[in-house]
Write a protein that binds this DNA or RNA. Structure first.
Lengths: 230, 230
DNA sequence: GACAACTCTCAGAAAACTTCCAGCTAACAG
DNA sequence: CTGTTAGCTGGAAGTTTTCTGAGAGTTGTC
């Protein structure tokens, strides 16, 4: 999933910066927009591959923006950013076609996963896999299902995200700070001890099934999943 | 990793001097800045390749500087310098994009390794290898893994840093003072005997596997790793 | 409104790591 | 060959990091 042209629309500069930095780092081209009218202009002008669109904007709502551009025949996929208490049905109605939504505050890994999913579904990109395999571990992104040696494992949402982040970076030590920044919501204010806790939960569920420990502790550095090949 | 343009921002002149001297010695161009406002100006004016940014500055905090320049669309990678007890929770949120942090007091080798890692990840530089090889010894920087003749070796953080420092300077005698300055934190107050201890630890782990002694003692001078080629 | 699942914090225990020390060994000079 | 000195290494003390169980608080479900 390299080099998409992404438009980020949000009135909070922090969110815009957070998202643009991460997306640029992931290799995409990013443009930003602070409000609805500007967003419409930019969408029409630059025809981005995907739009991250805050629902609550100072002028025109994200829904309004969508209606407008759809009316112009532009069917760019949209990932809505909504507050947690915006009613679900309102959103559900709008996420037709390839669209999707995430609630604020989100985690970066969540956003990246959704973008991959959308691009996969709309067929504009085949390179990001819906199926991750590292050794005995398999993760089915579509079904949110995890198996070790073919045995299915039940994981909570946070456990799943943590495992996926580790599995998408095999043979690479990830620090607790990196893990926190990717897997937990951006406004999480707690300690890194929580990463240790969740690694512990994962090991308790995974290691009884696997033939060898999956998550390796690199003391003083972080955690890593080793792929047997390399 | 030659000839980067680095901006060092710290209010302590000692730290500035320490870092500029080392970075210049490593072949980079260095500019320095004692506070946040000056830093912002210099970043905008000179567009450095990387910024070493103290979090605790007299005027604007390092976070404030970051926010400001990111808001201006400058996405230069930043390596934050933080006190160890501004602990971890404030640091969360920093490792997005290409950014990273080190805690004070740091070791010079640590700083150099982080800079290399950032430049590697942001793709602005391909010349600094994530994989060091000297004879039978291989060091994988991503996985923090060391192998001798393909056999993996478990090293503690200090052992790893010492070995890496030696391995990045093959065929060259490094004095204990140099080693102390590079591998240990800059405010380390102990004796050079500790270098001998750690060389001993490394030998105990490495020599049983290698076909010939890896670390050579140059009596009265220091230590060296010899590369078979040269 | 009770139950179940999940998230997060905390604190004690266990393990790993760092440092210093002191006695020993190997190298070199004369 | 012998004395001197630099370097080596095992051990012990002290510190830091990691692991994990228990519990409080939340959210969602029936």
């Amino acid at each position: 999933m390299e080099n998409l042209r992404v438009l980020v629309v949000d009135d909070e500069p922090n969110i815009r910066d957070l998202l643009s930095a991460s997306l640029r780092f992931a290799g995409h081209q990013v443009a930003t927009s602070p409000n609805g009218t500007d967003a419409i202009t930019k969408i029409v002008d630059t025809q981005p591959d995907i739009v991250l669109l805050d629902v609550m904007l100072p002028d025109i709502s994200g829904f309004g923006v969508t209606k407008k551009i759809r009316g112009m025949g532009i069917d760019v996929p949209i990932l809505f950013l909504t507050a947690r208490d915006d009613t679900e049905d309102k959103i559900a109605g709008l996420t037709v076609g390839g669209d999707d939504y995430v609630t604020k505050p989100f985690s970066l890994d969540e956003i990246m996963a959704r973008i991959s999913a959308i691009m996969r579904r709309t067929g504009k990109d085949g390179s990001s896999p819906s199926h991750i395999q590292v050794g005995e571990l398999e993760i089915n992104e579509d079904a949110h299902e995890v198996t070790v040696n073919g045995t299915p494992v039940e994981l909570s949402p946070t456990e799943y995200q943590l495992l996926r982040y580790l599995a998408t970076n095999p043979n690479r030590v990830l620090t607790k700070a990196q893990i926190l920044d990717h897997v937990w919501e951006y406004d999480f204010n707690g300690e890194m001890g929580i990463v240790e806790s969740y690694v512990s939960y994962l090991r308790k569920k995974l290691d009884p099934i696997s033939t060898e420990p999956l998550i390796i502790t690199k003391r003083g550095v972080g955690y890593m999943i080793r792929s047997p090949k390399a």
